[in-house]
């Protein structure tokens, strides 16, 4: 198996008729992703890229039984698109859209609190299960099936991590981009626990970020989790201090200023293998002798 999406996962695309969406959805189809429908309000009834387009997610689900969505809608429409997706009972939403206002994301999180919909993103390259399903914008030609799970908060570094796995002569079970916005849906703990439970996955590569404390939470969780698999982690940013915020509130929220050294220490104290440079990942993978 793999996690979240497989060959038989029925996928619909919200905002399918946009230029970028069309470009990437076509490629996902060529890759073998089971895309069954599109949704664009006002364009219901037409065929686009060979699949039927519906006005609402609810109609699309009723007609096609789709259980997952790739979201390409404009930033200002994300909130209402999420409401639609969750009301239609979708199990998984992958939101590619970027520049979604933080206030909207706070509301989205509030809406999804009591809801079964798993939300990934926004501003993510999406997720890919090699040779089975591509729910996003990954450069698919760098991926091969295998037993390494990838979870990342950075988009380009996700690709770099995948290339490192290839360099080690291995492939991926599933690659998940969490997105690097201030408010995101699923986080490291959600995806790590799915990988721990997945038979195919033997080890995990995790790409963290200096901002926020999701990595610290993951470390805490990993320390106490059962069925532990090796996790290799990279966090960029030790060479520069990116002081882009004004005031003290941000540091107070995170209980003090976060430095990459402290963050790395918390992770390695929890038993996670931390690499200093992204191009060291393949060596650590080889050491695992999977």
């Amino acid at each position: 198996m793999s996690i979240l999406a497989q060959k038989n996962t029925k996928v619909l695309v919200q905002g399918i008729t946009g230029t970028q969406a069309s470009f990437h959805v076509k490629r996902s189809m060529d890759y073998g992703t089971n895309i069954v429908a599109g949704v664009t309000p006002g364009k219901g009834g037409m065929l686009h890229l060979g699949v039927p387009v519906f006005n609402t997610v609810k109609d699309a689900v009723a007609q096609t039984n789709a259980s997952a969505s790739i979201m390409f809608v404009p930033a200002h429409a994300v909130k209402s698109a999420v409401v639609e997706a969750s009301e239609a009972g979708l199990n998984l939403v992958v939101c590619i859209s970027d520049k979604v206002p933080v206030r909207d994301m706070l509301e989205v999180r509030n809406i999804l609190k009591n809801n079964q919909t798993h939300f990934i993103g926004p501003n993510t390259p999406g997720l890919i299960t090699p040779n089975e399903a591509r729910l996003g914008i990954f450069p698919e030609n760098i991926h091969t099936p295998g037993n390494i799970g990838v979870v990342s908060r950075s988009s380009t570094l996700t690709y770099e991590a995948v290339l490192e796995i290839r360099r080690a002569g291995l492939g991926q079970s599933t690659v998940v981009g969490l997105g690097d916005d201030i408010i995101i849906g699923m986080n490291f703990v959600d995806i790590l626990s799915a990988f721990m439970a997945d038979e195919q996955t033997k080890a995990i590569v995790m790409i963290g970020q200096l901002d926020g404390t999701f990595e610290e939470l993951a470390a805490q969780w990993y320390r106490n989790c059962c069925g532990k698999k090796p996790v290799i982690c990279f966090i960029a940013g030790h060479s520069q201090v990116f002081n882009t915020t004004v005031g003290y509130a941000g540091d107070i929220i995170t209980h003090g200023k976060i430095t990459s050294e402290e963050k790395k220490k918390i992770l390695s104290d929890a038993g996670i293998i931390v690499v200093e440079q992204i191009n060291h990942i393949h060596q650590e993978l080889q050491k695992l002798q999977l």
């Binding site: 908060r153 380009t156 770099e160 940013g237 060479s239 440079q277 992204i278």
Partner: peptide
């Protein structure tokens, strides 16, 4: 992320 990794 890539920018920062390159800086490092």
């Amino acid at each position: 992320g890539m920018a920062m990794a390159m800086c490092d």
